[in-house]
Simulated assay, not measured.
Amino acid sequence: MDGAVVRLKSASRPVGQDLPDAGPGGAAAFGIEDQELEAIRAAAVGGLKNGDTSLINDTIHACGPDEALRVYGPELIRRARQLDQFRRSSLTTYAYGA
């Protein structure tokens, strides 16, 4: 799985740039097999359970939102965004001192 994550991140672009679709072939264009995608999804689910959204966010920045949607699906993307928004909430900052 680590090799698959490295291959996804190797296509990184500047964060401020529009992030278009990764192009034809999606994850297959990065040489990532279905079994590796399942492992990446499982790692993202584990990270979300611990409040870590970095794997999903890194994929969005490296490969674009369309490819991240194909890799993780809409539910995991939504959960990651919710966690990020909760973390930035002023009520959370005051309550937990983040």
Rank of each mutant, 00 (worst) to 15 (best):
L8N: 02
S10A: 15
V45Q: 04
A22W: 10
S89R: 05
T93E: 05
A11W: 07
V71Y: 00
R79C: 14
Q17R: 05
V15P: 03
A29S: 15
P20G: 09
D58L: 05
G25Q: 01
K9I: 07
A27H: 00
A29N: 11
F30I: 03
G51R: 06
Q82M: 12
G47V: 02
M1F: 10
A80R: 03
Y72R: 00
A27N: 01
D52F: 02
A98K: 12
S90P: 03
C63A: 13
E67S: 12
S12C: 13
G73V: 05
L19M: 06
D34S: 12
A98R: 15
R13A: 15
R13Y: 04
L55P: 01
P24L: 14
A42E: 09
N50F: 08
Y94I: 10
P74D: 14
Q82S: 14
A43T: 10
P14V: 01
G73S: 05
N50W: 02
I60V: 04
A4H: 00
R7M: 06
D18K: 14
G47S: 13
D34E: 15
R7I: 05
D58S: 07
N50E: 13
G23K: 04
A98Y: 12
L55N: 03
G47E: 07
Y72C: 01
D66I: 04
A62P: 03
R88L: 14
R7H: 08
I32M: 07
N57C: 11
L8A: 04
G46L: 04
P65N: 10
T53V: 14
P24T: 11
E38P: 00
L83Y: 03
G51F: 01
A43P: 10
K9D: 10
A98I: 15
E33G: 04
